[in-house]
Design a protein around this nucleic acid. Structure first.
Lengths: 179, 179
DNA sequence: ACACACATGTAAGGCGTTACATGATTCC
DNA sequence: GGAATCATGTAACGCCTTACATGTGTGT
């Protein structure tokens, strides 16, 4: 089972969903640390069903055909096995950091511009994250992990904005007093 | 020009290098926000040379064949154009956050274990980053952007460790006082 | 003699995105 | 009538990793 398969499995474990609903759920939650497109989701649903990890049933709305998938016992088992494993891959592709890494090759003003643009990007990101509603209130000390992960994203971007501010300040003062 | 092409272009802009040296430079610097393997580097070198952005010359060491690439004026132009553009893609695949997102489906003890494992991973990451030597001392107010980016990685991981600590604490107290 | 670092590449395969194709329903 | 949303899928392509193949030089 691929990791994108695990996302799908997890979402249908929470409640039965159609492919379309899975895509919507991904886009409003895991997208920032695990994205998925239709081009992955539908073929993966097929594979998971063939593997007996999920089961789909027709659930049309009017004449609009629609299939809803629920997790099977075997699927739940596979999902739990993945989930409990405390090992995880991590991969980042950050073109902004890449440009900053090479910014010595740029005139100071252009480098400063890069930092400001990065700050603005974090600000936009933050706004999108803050627009996401946290789940229903704390259920008697329950963990509400999706909210924790949302807080992680928010905190991370706030930290990054602070970093940009520091760098901007350092760069500006170095600019004023060259040599 | 692809973004991995830009990394290669930037590294040979700093100084002429062989494919092997590019791989080593990537592994000890950009790897954490932009990785590259031999399977990308050598074909990309070929493409960049064919496009006239870099020029390779034989530079054998003994009987060991070796080619060193330097950037051409056209290459430098293309690189600068990419570098100055304050737009950048950003993509994260974080399996740890994914597991945390679904951790409501796990017994509390196992969820706690996930947080601890993430903390340990950040700790290891931090150790690797701190092992990287910063470049030569500040050259009269020069920016030393690679060092700034290194500091970014260090600061980010320190922040993440703090987040893990907070979550661990919240989880432990909820565990002691259930309901 | 053996292991490890230096050095250059290719082939196969996995993962993922984008664009396209199709059609129903709802809202203005 | 038109646009947006709901809904399912496929095809082509790009990017990247892994594994392999080959050979030299250095240190023990």
């Amino acid at each position: 089972m691929s990791r994108t398969g695990a996302v799908i499995l997890g979402l249908v474990a929470l409640r039965p969903r159609s492919g379309y609903e899975i895509k919507a759920a991904v886009d409003s939650s895991t997208r920032f640390f695990w994205a998925a497109s239709y081009g992955q989701i539908y073929p993966e649903l097929k594979r998971l069903e063939e593997g007996g990890l999920i089961a789909g049933e027709p659930a049309p709305r009017g004449a609009r055909r629609r299939r809803v998938f629920r997790i099977t016992p075997a699927g739940r088992e596979a999902f739990d096995a993945w989930l409990a494993q405390p090992e995880f891959s991590w991969e980042l592709r950050d073109e902004g950091l890449l440009k900053l890494f090479f910014a010595d090759l740029l005139p100071p003003a252009a480098a400063l511009e890069l930092v400001r643009a990065r700050r603005a990007a974090h600000e936009r990101f933050l706004a999108r994250l803050r627009a996401i509603q946290p789940g229903p209130g704390p259920v008697a000390g329950a963990a509400r992990f999706p909210d924790l992960v949302l807080e992680y994203g928010i905190g991370m971007n706030e930290w990054a904005i602070g970093w940009c501010d520091e760098v901007e300040r350092a760069l500006s003062s170095a600019d004023e007093r060259p040599g």
